[in-house]
């Protein structure tokens, strides 16, 4: 018998959902509205660059980007199953959803690793 991959995938879904629930609204408010629209003085480019280059922050950013993508993959997959009744496309939907999360996580990892 092969083991079901569901428990680890659910764990990623849950971790990503929790991270997004706590941190995403304030992050989007600051970096999607407050700074681009000039509601407040944004951090200078040098400050942002120093922040992104800081090793613990790079690790934080990787989790911040990657985990919620797996949350999306898992939730969206089942929404397609139940909402659009795509159970017969099981494999295709799963590969597309988790595959997207994996590819974007790899891009994020490579971006944050060759910061120099």
């Amino acid at each position: 018998m092969t083991r079901s991959p569901t428990p680890p995938l659910w764990l990623l879904f849950s971790a990503g959902g929790t991270l997004a629930a706590f941190l995403f609204p304030i992050h989007l408010l600051l970096f999607g509205f407050v700074f681009p629209l000039g509601w407040a003085e944004p951090p200078s480019y040098e400050q942002l660059l120093a922040l992104v280059r800081h090793p613990p922050i790079r690790l934080y950013l990787f989790g911040f980007i990657s985990l919620p993508l797996f949350h999306w993959a898992h939730r969206f997959r089942y929404t397609l199953y139940d909402g659009l009744k795509l159970k017969h496309l099981n494999m295709l939907v799963a590969v597309l959803c988790y595959g997207t999360a994996v590819v974007l996580s790899v891009v994020a990892a490579r971006t944050l690793l060759d910061v120099g």
Partner: peptide, 10 residues
Amino acid sequence: FVALVSVLTL
């Protein structure tokens, strides 16, 4: 939209 914010951050 959670995924959208991940991509935006990236």
